Amino acid sequence: MRGWLTRLFASRAGLILTGGTIGLLAVLLEKLGNPPGTGLCISCFERDIAGALGLHQTEGGQYIRPEIIGLVLGSSLSALLFGEFKARGGSSPLIRFFLGAFAMIGALTFMGCPIGVILRLAGGNLNALLALSGLVTGVAIGVGFIRSGFDLGGKQTLPPINAWLMPLFMLALLFIFLADLRVNDAAAPFRSWVEPSSLSAPLDVALFAGLLTG
C-alpha cells in the first residue's frame, strides 16, 4: 500500500491530483470565510501567526491560522507513515535564514506566494500577472545559480528531537487557540479584528484542509 501511494504521488497523475485538491481546498476556504485572494496562502498565514505571537504589531495581521497547524501536523503524520520522518540540517545556516527572510518579504510585499498568485489570477486580478512574472524570473535565476555550481553544503542527519519540535509547537499553538488563552489585550496571543485577519473559515474546515494538504 505504501509503495503504491509513493508511486502514485510521484507520477504525473498524482501531481495533478494533488495540485487540483489543494486548489479546490483553497477556493473552498475562501468561499467559507478566508480573506479574498488568499484561501490557503502560506505566507499570509505565517504572517498572521507571527503577529498573533507578538512578533509584529501590524493591524489586520494577527491570528493563529488553523490551516498552518493542520499543514504541519498532516505532513508530519504523512512522513511517519511513509518512513520519512527524520531531522535533517545543512550548512550555511545564516545564508539559509536570509534567503528565507527575503522569500517571505517578496511573497508578502510583491504577491509572490504561488498559491496567492494563482488564486488572484483565477479571480480576475491581472496584477497577479506581474507577480507571476517576478516569481518565474526568480525561479529562473535560482536555477541558473544551481546549474552554475552554487551549493549551500550537504545535508546531515540530526537527533530525532529536532524533527519533533515543530509538530509539538503546532500542538501547543492549537491548544492556545482552542483554550483562548489570552491574558489581556497587551499580551500575546493577539487576535486582530481588522481585515484581512478578522476573516476566517470555520475552525474544523480550516484544520481539515491543512491536514489534508499536509
Rank of each mutant, 00 (worst) to 15 (best):
F190P: 01
D180K: 04
V117T: 15
W193F: 12
G134V: 09
G74Y: 11
P160V: 03
L212G: 05
G100T: 02
S75P: 01
G100F: 11
S192V: 00
K155F: 01
L55R: 02
S197C: 09
G19F: 15
R191P: 03
N34I: 07
M104S: 11
R147D: 07
S192F: 00
S43C: 02
V194M: 12
A188T: 04
E195Y: 10
S76K: 02
R96N: 06
G154D: 15
G60R: 08
R147K: 15
G154N: 14
R7G: 07
P167T: 03
L203K: 03
F9S: 01
L17Y: 10
M166Q: 10
L71K: 05
I118Y: 13
A209R: 07
A201D: 07
A26I: 07
T213H: 03
D151R: 10
G124Y: 10
S78A: 15
A79F: 06
R65H: 08
C41W: 06
A122V: 12
L121A: 11
T137K: 00
P93M: 12
K86W: 09
G90F: 05
P160S: 09
L77D: 00
P202G: 07
N125P: 00
A209K: 02
P160M: 04
D185E: 14
L158Y: 03
I16R: 08
L211N: 07
A26Q: 07
P202A: 08
L5K: 02
M111F: 07
G70T: 08
E195S: 13
R65T: 09
L108P: 08
M1E: 11
A87F: 11
I95H: 06
G14N: 08
R88A: 07
P202H: 06
L132T: 05
C113L: 13
E195P: 00
E84I: 00
I22R: 03
L53R: 10
A140S: 14
G70I: 11
V194I: 15
Q57P: 00
L203M: 13
V205K: 03
G90P: 01
K31R: 15
T6N: 11
T58E: 09
G144S: 14
I69E: 04
K155V: 06
E59P: 13
